[in-house]
Amino acid sequence: MTDALKFQAKNISRVFGHGKKSVTAVDNVTFEIRDREIISLVGQSGCGKTVLAKMLLRLETPTSGELLFNGKPITATGDPRNHWRQVQAVFQDPFSCFNQFFTIRSQLKSSFRLFETKPSPGEIEERVDQALLAVNIKPKEVEGKYPFELSGGQMQRMLLARIFILKPQVLIADEPTSMVDACSRASILDYLLKLKEELSMTIVFVTHDIGLAYYISDSLYIMHKGKMVDRGAPDDVIKHPTSDVTKQLLEDIPDVHRQWIARGTPVHAAE
């Protein structure tokens, strides 16, 4: 972690619609994301996490406030492609992330459009294979397959393979493990941690699972109804929650977690 700031948001808001029917999805939020840091945005469904993530991605524009990327307004580079070369994303719903009319592989290959110098076709094939292997998918397994022939978890891995190809500076991961079981989730998290270490990536992790956020992140932001209600180092937030929302969130964690921990020290904790 360095002290350089990747993102700086000053009082940004995003309002949809006008007048009486308007919805304030993100409400006057100020925060910063340091280089090579993993931050988590945690909050209930509909609290504005995805909208905030899309603003960082330059897919949504704040209706007010200022959003800086690397110290300059996010729109400073005229061509948004420049932004997307540096900031990439894994979206929330893997079922709707791919075009049903093209094979998965051809859609992975279309990521190479962002490259300023496009590799040769042979190299593209090779790098796609590598990316698939990196996320634990055998290239043969998905050869010629269309999105609807894969399970949700496999599609989420495909989205991560795409990140492996693009190697951005910042990854915005919107619920990247919502479709996988706990064991695979842990291995995907390991993969993200590895990306952070090896490629010095900054990761914005969006989730509703506070346990997951607690485990992976260097700082934790709790959102509620568009506002940031709690923030800080994970241990601080867990031990000394300042807002009622965080307290409620911690209270609603299924008892089984505590019961299971109480039953004995997990073997791996010794490491």
Binding site: N136, C183, S187, Y215, P234, D235, E271
Partner: peptide
């Protein structure tokens, strides 16, 4: 497998941050 599923649980309980969850590489067989 069912033990690993439990062991890979991530919990927001103090002190659990340093616990390494059981991660299982690979994918189920075809």
């Amino acid at each position: 497998y069912s033990r690993a599923l439990m062991g890979s649980m991530l919990s927001a309980e103090p002190g659990q941050k340093s616990r390494k969850p059981v991660a299982i590489e690979g994918a189920p067989p075809k």
